[in-house]
């Protein structure tokens, strides 16, 4: 029986964001935008979706009079990511048999 892939993570941009955040403590919005090559609008929407399910935390503050958005992965996000990778592996293992 295959584990169902988490629909929140099984989307290109959201998975890219979570994969970026998994290895760092926190990252600025501009960094994520630059690395994913996404548009600011689309990225904002996907970040909000990840925040709504509790996979990431978003902190908004001001730095040198400019708005600064910082994102970090939550414990729930790490668990979801690990579960997603395990599910992927089970699919791939089944494909090899």
């Amino acid at each position: 029986m295959f584990k169902e892939l988490d629909p929140i993570l099984h989307s290109q941009l959201r998975l890219a964001v979570v994969s970026l955040l998994i290895g760092v403590k926190e990252a600025e919005f501009t960094f994520i935008k630059e690395k994913t090559n996404a548009t600011a609008g689309n990225l904002s929407v996907q970040i909000q979706k990840l925040k709504d399910v509790g996979y990431i935390e978003v902190e908004k503050q001001f730095k040198d009079n400019y708005p600064l958005t910082t994102c970090s992965i939550t414990k729930k996000g790490v668990e979801a990511f690990e579960k997603y990778v395990k599910a992927l592996q089970s699919y791939l293992d089944a494909g090899k048999k």
Binding site: L5, H10, S11, Q12, L13, R14, L15, A16, S19, L20, I22, G23, K35, T36, N37, A38, N42, V45, Q46, V85, L88, Y91, L92, G95
Partner: peptide
């Protein structure tokens, strides 16, 4: 990078690896 593109398992793994790198 678009959001709604459906990913295969291989593409997902590839994406994860690329972003971590």
């Amino acid at each position: 990078m678009s959001n709604e593109k459906k990913l295969t398992e291989q593409e997902s793994l590839q994406l994860i690896t690329t972003m971590i790198q």
